[in-house]
Design a protein around this nucleic acid. Structure first.
Lengths: 331, 331
DNA sequence: GCGTTACGCTCAAACGTTATGCCGACGAAC
DNA sequence: GTTCGTCGGCATAACGTTTGAGCGTAACGC
């Protein structure tokens, strides 16, 4: 692979001149410039980005930490981030942590050693230890948190309005005539669980509907917990006529539980859920779903991050909150 | 951020010695080694991977080119690749091309300049131009093709047995009593389309069933083409009792078309399809589906690639062909 | 005609590592 | 007692860039 020296030799100039041509500096004569460009083309030369990174102390690489790319919420988010990054000449390298704090810490070390210019972060746990995030921030690494936001940390973030989203969903269930509406919340160590529960409570309260304490069950965002808590809810008497779950995998569990009990949606129980399976509008049952604008979260987060990196963003943490989109399902 | 010089200064040794400690060279005395390790810990030093890459001429980074991470086939594949890469100390940076050849070429240039150690490639088009791939190969860049394989190129690959998978699926439809089975194939410029069609033909032939030419329609792997061709098939008289489509998005289109015509699966038409939505086993309709072991494709492809990079793989291209898994649906 | 300025280019010093050659000290062997 | 290995450790030259200092030439003002 040819280096800048080879180009310089072939064009009969110094390496500095070639570098200037490459960086588009104004200090390039017509004649020499053409000779250099000719040599570059002849040799099919591409600048060595590693050497450039070392010298310029910037890698034009963004790290991205998510819990699991196989979770259908993330691919769109990653795609949004990658598209915007590419547009501005950055590349993205993504890591899965499965929401495990030890993996997250490992990846932080890795990214530090790799000298990424910035970090898009979906924190594993919002309410727990985030000393490693704080330290990275203190060391000057720009970070933007997506979807979730660590407690008490002055960091940029792009999230959705969880309260309003849930509220809209439950409101729709109520509007369709449901009165006994139960809910399965997410893991207690995340704010978004509490927010989504709050949306449910507000919708019930504004409609003057009582909330039976047995209707509120704390899951952990996993399918199995949807199955377990869904089963429990479906066995109550009187049975709730509707169940709102805090994310999609738990809804899958609820549907399983219904099937086991010979129940069908929407005939027996109407479903509401946070998140939405993009492809699944042709399948049944079709729950009323709160869609998060994942692509936008990724894209806007990346825009904010790169603005920070390039010193384009105003000081002080910015918090962008995006609206969710309600998809009415079968009631 | 501290450098190796800072560590050397603090430990009162030369940088070479620190480097030796870091690389675990045997030439380290107990006393000095401890002093160096102490300094590393005190300063919270992490080696600068960029500098190391420049010097060692290897980045421990793998490039991955796929068509679109938002296509549900890919997340598992990426995850498999990333897990195996992490295990062996490599990181992965992925790029989406939307199956566009110009994007693919751009990304090739980018990766070359970034000096990735190897490339996991899902080629945009199998039968078309692949001069850029050939050139990269000639320049010594290790490449492993996943899922698809470019025509006439001696390159490692990990694919699935498309013929056997399709054949098993159609065979099952036949075993369940279907006789008039139609198929929608994928884009003609990919071998896997032809292979999946071949599986269909073999299953029909071995059962002695005639194939009405009207039953074989060429789609393009997109949902819309499933809708269009599905609609056409469903309007035939006599109507096929079963439709086998070459991938999942097209099946979605077929289901849409059925709904438009007031038809239901499995009551009116049984569905068979290549690919499978992991989460969707709880939804209806539930087609008989040929699952590709995506995670395995990613993991095995990465193993092969890293073996190549590290000189562990025997010469000559290797082709790994994995089996598909048949999931019987509602008939 | 000389000093100044502007311009175009070259030179060389970084950036943070690794790897190679080398040196001094210490034992062992003769 | 001299000669050798050997072994631990140091100094330093790369790796391929960017960048600021430096320098020769030409144009210009006085």
């Amino acid at each position: 692979m040819p280096t800048i020296k080879d180009v310089a030799a072939r064009a009969g100039v110094s390496v500095g001149t070639v570098s200037n041509v490459l960086s588009g500096a104004a200090t390039v004569t017509g004649g020499l410039k053409r000779r250099v460009e000719r040599a570059i083309a002849d040799l099919n030369y591409r600048p060595n980005h590693v050497a450039r990174s070392l010298k310029k102390r910037t890698t034009r690489t963004l790290g991205m930490i998510i819990s699991d790319i196989a979770n259908p919420f993330f691919p769109e988010l990653v795609r949004g981030a990658e598209d915007h990054a590419a547009e501005r000449g950055y590349i993205l390298t993504a890591f899965n942590t499965d929401d495990r704090l030890d993996r997250e810490r490992q990846v932080f070390d890795l990214l530090r050693s790799r000298h990424v210019d910035g970090l898009l972060l979906v924190v594993a746990l919002e309410k727990d230890e985030s000393a490693h995030v704080a330290r990275a921030l203190a060391e000057g690494l720009p970070i933007v948190c997506l979807d979730r936001r660590p407690a008490k940390l002055a960091v940029d973030s792009v999230t959705v309005d969880n309260v309003a989203g849930s509220q809209a969903c439950v409101r729709h269930l109520i509007a369709e005539g449901h009165r006994r509406i139960a809910t399965i919340t997410g893991a207690a160590n995340m704010y978004l669980s509490a927010e989504r529960l709050e949306g449910y409570r507000r919708a019930m309260a504004e409609a003057g509907l009582p909330v039976d304490p047995r209707w509120v069950r704390e899951g952990d965002f996993r399918r199995e917990s949807g199955y377990r808590h869904g089963g429990a809810l479906l066995r109550l008497t009187p049975r709730p006529t509707s169940i709102f779950s805090g994310n999609f995998p738990m809804t899958l569990g609820v549907i399983e539980a219904m099937r086991d009990l010979g129940l069908e949606s929407p005939r027996d129980v109407a479903l509401g859920t946070f998140d939405r399976l993009a492809l699944a509008d042709v399948f049944r049952p079709r729950p009323t779903a709160v869609e998060q604008p994942s692509y936008e979260i990724g894209a806007q987060g990346t825009r904010l991050l790169i603005d920070r990196i390039e010193g384009l963003a105003p000081a002080g943490p910015r918090h962008i909150v995006l609206d969710t989109i309600l998809h009415k399902g079968d009631i």
